[in-house]
Design a protein around this nucleic acid. Structure first.
Length: 826
DNA sequence: ATAGGGTTAG
């Protein structure tokens, strides 16, 4: 557009229909009221045109006013043309233009104009021009240039001016030179709320929010009235510190002060409440706000996402779009995270499409969010495509991608990327290691775990809560409870997750008593156990078959209101069944809502273990009636039920249906089960042939199943073969030696039995001693076969001898034919 | 001259 088009529009303007308006003095008033009004951009052009007609073309004062109006309306082109045509310019004209360019992020033009000013005018630049120029330098990150301008400011003696001084403070704040900024600040003879805001936000930005709050107090002491800018800055400092009480006080002040309607203040308040986990309060404030902007919506969505209110975040995102808001990169990043958490691939893809349309493809946050979303939804190929399309990667891009591979156990991909990251200039963060440790934990590879731990130590970063519990977890899963405990003890700070990891670690390592001890310490430390703690504890009770503990935990679970948690329910059902209370287990199972496949599996397996094969199969039928898809573990239970009950045909039928009907590839446990099934039916040869036809390499457990059957039916030849195969696979396991030796002993083949015993020593296999335990008055007493460790061993054996003699009187005769020689010689 | 919102892990 040119001045010609302005003139055309002037003719049609309703504002100028009144002839009085055309007088110069009236035009000035009209312009002034336009600038302070809301719709100035509509009237500026007609007024401009009229001013030319009314002879104001060369009026410096009027032109400066117009320049100001165009600048406020963002009509840069008109301002530029006017400025060029002005026959006369003063400091105000230059200053308006430079500050306009700066405000609209046209730093280069601002600096260029400053050069022409110095070139064409002999006047010294005033404090306003210098402040604008400094801001332009800072915005365009031309810090060297800014330092030169500082020199000029000092030369002109303007460094004690509030405007120039504040701009300088802002410059040093941006480059992290808080000391220098404070030096300038203390030299200023006059300060106002703008100056204070600059230093307060400066400290917040370098993470020293406490200093920000201290400065805010100093500001109030020096009787400077806080404005909405400082207030938002200070609230944001409170939010960074999780200082809810402080934030609330300022919220109260804001309400008394009359700034409660300010959008920005409310935005930071929403942020504060969300960061302090008060999402409901934040949401109420958000709903109450009459005027909202894009930041209000984004803050609310981010707050929901950060507190795992993912569905609410999604709804807000849809709502804002419907209301016509165009979500920016910030909103997209947050919503992508929520899509990932909800595994909402479809919605995630829609956001991806929108992001492309909205030209957000170069936003690193959005890209990282996309990687995370696709990885969480299981689309690793798409995640990688986004990753590869990025020009530059940061640590988060790598971490999100590595975490995706780790979660899906893509070992090679994860470590290839990890090495690529290390060979570049990017340093892996603790988060990277946490992901890799998670992978290592799910694979339970101790060497790998230790190597990663070494890298963490070499990196020289102190463990945080995440890394600490990841290490506790990985060592527990690798069956190194002592190493896990060493990490646990080394931590300065422990949260509930860490305690749970250690308690669960002991559970996995069959050190139930240590787990119980730790639970006691947890309570002493004033922590409140959650569903994870109770799952571990109930599992301990289950492993120890201690109904006493199980009942106690169950009542604590009810008190804590956690009895409807599906994982807790599963653990309880398992515990009751393990403790022999199969009916209680069934009752609990029956009353559980939303039973998942794990729940059904545990009921099936437990019935099978108790020899209630019919019940187990009935539950399996019920499960299918309820359309619950059986999985790998389900069939372990079903096959075990069939083999216990001698249901050979039915068992084989289920075995075949596994792959044919449900598409589940049978694993070692299933093959072993079928061998047991055939073996129990006496079909030893068939069992052997079955093993030989297995599509996977039979593990020791499969041969041992056959061996057990051979022992049952006294088949020496096949038994010998099965034992050899089993020992070949796992020489350290004492089981096959014992079983084979038993076969020989039962046939009176003592020399062969002796040979097997020697072979056992040769391979270093040690028979695990049998344990038994009894619980008396909340204390578990453990006994090893023939052990004398118990403090009252003498008395116990005395009573035992008495009992033996008593049962012999009633006609009991111990069966010694199948005992190991070891036992006979004893 | 000054303020406010975003990503990865146990």
């Amino acid at each position: 557009m040119t001045f010609k088009s302005i003139a055309v529009s002037a003719v049609a303007s309703p504002v100028l229909r009144n002839p009085h308006v055309k007088r110069p003095q009236t035009l000035v008033h009209l312009l002034q009221s336009c600038i302070s009004g809301q719709t100035h951009h509509l009237h500026l052009q007609p007024i401009h045109a009229q001013s030319i007609i009314s002879g104001l073309r060369s009026d410096l004062f009027f032109n400066n006013l117009l320049l100001n109006g165009y600048s406020k309306s963002g009509l840069l082109g008109y301002a530029q043309e006017l400025f060029e045509r002005m026959p006369e310019r003063n400091m105000i004209s230059w200053s308006s233009m430079i500050s306009m360019y700066t405000q609209h992020n046209r730093e280069e033009e601002a600096l260029c104009l400053f050069s022409s000013f110095r070139w064409s005018s002999s006047d010294r630049p005033n404090e306003f021009i210098l402040a604008s120029v400094l801001r332009a330098c800072v915005q365009s990150e031309a810090f060297d240039h800014a330092a030169q301008v500082h020199g000029l400011v000092a030369k002109l003696g303007l460094d004690s001016d509030v405007f120039a001084g504040t701009a300088l403070i802002n410059f040093y704040t941006k480059i992290g030179g808080m000391d220098k900024a404070m030096l300038i600040f203390y030299e200023l003879p006059v300060t106002n709320s703008v100056t204070w805001t600059a230093v307060i936000t400066g400290y917040s930005q370098i993470g020293k929010s406490v200093t920000s709050l201290r400065l805010f107090n100093q500001m109030k002491e020096s009787r400077v009235q806080p404005d909405r800018f400082v207030l938002s800055s200070v609230i944001s400092a409170c939010s960074a510190l999780d200082f809810l009480e402080g934030g609330r006080q300022i919220h109260g002040y804001v309400c008394r002060n009359g700034t409660e309607m300010d959008v920005s203040i409310n935005n930071v308040l929403i942020d504060l409440y969300c960061k302090c986990c008060k999402v409901r309060i934040a949401r109420r404030l958000f709903d109450w706000m009459v005027v909202k902007n894009l930041v209000s919506w984004t803050t609310m969505i981010a707050g929901c996402m950060q507190n795992s209110f993912d569905l609410e975040a999604m709804n807000l995102f849809v709502e804002m779009s419907k209301l016509g808001w165009r979500p920016d990169g910030f909103a997209c990043t947050s919503i992508l995270t929520s899509c990932g958490s909800l595994m909402a691939l479809q919605q995630g893809k829609q956001v991806h499409g929108y992001a492309i349309k909205a030209k957000l493809e170069s936003d690193e946050y959005v890209n990282n969010g996309l990687i995370d979303m696709y990885a969480k939804c299981g689309s690793l190929v798409d995640a990688r495509a986004v990753f590869d399309a990025m020009i530059e990667h940061n640590v988060i891009s790598y971490n999100a991608m590595i975490e995706g591979y780790a979660r899906h156990e893509e070992l090679v991909e994860a470590f290839t990327l990890f090495n690529r990251m290390r060979s570049g200039s990017l340093h892996p963060s603790l988060l990277t290691y946490v992901s890799l440790l998670g992978l290592s934990a799910s694979l339970s590879v101790i060497d790998l775990s230790k190597q990663i731990h070494c890298l963490v130590i070499k990196a020289g970063v102190a463990l945080d809560l995440y890394a600490g519990s990841a290490l506790v977890d990985v060592y527990s899963k690798c069956l190194c409870a002592d190493d896990a405990r060493a990490v646990f003890d080394e931590m300065d700070l422990r949260d509930l997750v860490m305690w749970n990891a250690m308690i669960f670690g002991y559970t996995q390592n069959a050190q139930g008593e240590e787990a119980l001890k730790l639970f006691h310490q947890l309570c002493v430390a004033g922590m409140r156990p959650n569903e994870f703690t109770f799952v571990a504890l109930v599992t301990v009770a289950s492993n120890l078959a201690s109904l006493f503990h199980g009942l106690q935990f169950h009542s604590q679970i009810i008190k804590a209101g956690l009895d409807f948690d599906p994982h807790v329910s599963n653990a309880l059902i398992d515990m009751y069944a393990k403790c022999g209370c199969i009916e209680e287990a069934w009752m609990l199972f029956d009353s559980t809502r939303g039973r998942d496949v794990v729940c059904w599996n545990s009921m099936i397996s437990r019935y099978a273990q108790h020899g209630h094969a019919e019940e187990a199969l009935k539950v399996f039928q019920l499960m299918r009636n309820e359309d619950i898809e059986p999985n790998y573990v389900t069939f372990v239970g079903v096959l075990s039920a069939c083999s216990h009950a001698g249901l050979t045909e039915e068992g084989l039928c289920h075995f075949h249906s596994m792959k044919d009907k449900y598409g589940i590839e049978p694993g070692m446990e299933h093959y072993a089960s079928v061998v047991t099934l055939l073996g129990r039916a006496g079909k030893l040869q068939e069992a052997k042939e079955f093993i030989e036809q297995m599509p996977i390499e039979p593990a020791a457990v499969v041969w041992r199943s056959l061996l057990s059957a051979c022992r049952e039916f006294g088949n020496v030849d096949l038994g010998r073969y099965a034992a050899e195969m089993s020992i070949l696979k796992d020489p350290k396991d004492s089981g096959p030696y014992v079983l084979l030796s038993n076969i020989f002993a039962s046939k009176g083949m003592w020399a062969d039995a002796e040979k097997v015993r020697k072979g056992m020593d040769y391979f270093g296999a040690v028979k695990e001693p049998g344990y038994s335990w009894v619980e008396v008055h909340k204390e578990v007493h453990v006994f090893i076969a023939r052990g004398r460790e118990h403090p009252e061993a003498d008395m116990i054996y005395l009573v035992l001898d008495g009992l033996m003699q008593l049962i012999k009187v009633f006609g009991y005769e111990p069966d010694t034919t199948e005992l190991l020689m070891d036992d006979i010689n004893d």
